[in-house]
Amino acid sequence: MTEHGSIIYLEGVTVDYDGFKALNNLNFIVNHRELRVVIGPNGAGKTTLLDVISGKTKPAAGRVIFGKDRDLMGMREYEITQLGIGRKFQAPSIYGNLSVWENLDLSLSRPSKGIFATLRGISTAAEREEIDRTLETIGLQEQVRKRAGSLSHGQKQWLEIGMVILQDPELLLVDEPVAGMTDEETEQTGRLLQSLAEKHAIIVIEHDMEFVRQIARIVTVLHEGTVICEGTVEKVQADDRVREIYLGRQKVAHG
């Protein structure tokens, strides 16, 4: 049964890629307004976890419940998005041939995103204001009329974050947000995520342990498609199995 207060609830989820179990009987719960970091070695199933929640991958078995009792299984990506789950991809995924403004305008949460609504739709003053506010947050006011494809890598990352924010999701899925960012940008991103967590629930996938320490309250460690440990950063780092499969491995890799 759904635990009260959880925003996303996965039970016994299994994803099978031709015999390779990317997720294996996974159980996973995130509560409202929680900032959860998911770590794990390559191939642990982190991105697949986000794929399942956002509807990109259909699990072979298990249940995915959003909010109180919304079953996400069998729903299409855009339906899930409209329910209030936003996703930021690892490689920036934006509309290169549209201007920054248009990118944000398309992402803005609206009552209907059907064809006939968008054929008629004009942005209201309130919507413009919201976009302007987000532009300020992501610091792209100067580039507002620029073609998004001509932005720098970091700016594209920010733009995508802005797009996801404008969707006003209850749950934000963020895949390696600081990959390829400078230290300063990384810190900014961390602050942004923390401030967002005051209103939204966020799941972040991250490799950068420095960054994890900066933002994380609770960390989930995935390995071979299942959760092997969950808790504060300290607890996780102290866990033997985690050291063995994750930190240990990293030591070997670096040593």
Binding site: Y17, D18, F20, A22, T47, T48, K56
Partner: peptide, 8 residues
């Protein structure tokens, strides 16, 4: 092709 190399 399935899995992580599959195109969205």
């Amino acid at each position: 092709v399935k899995g992580r190399h599959a195109e969205g």
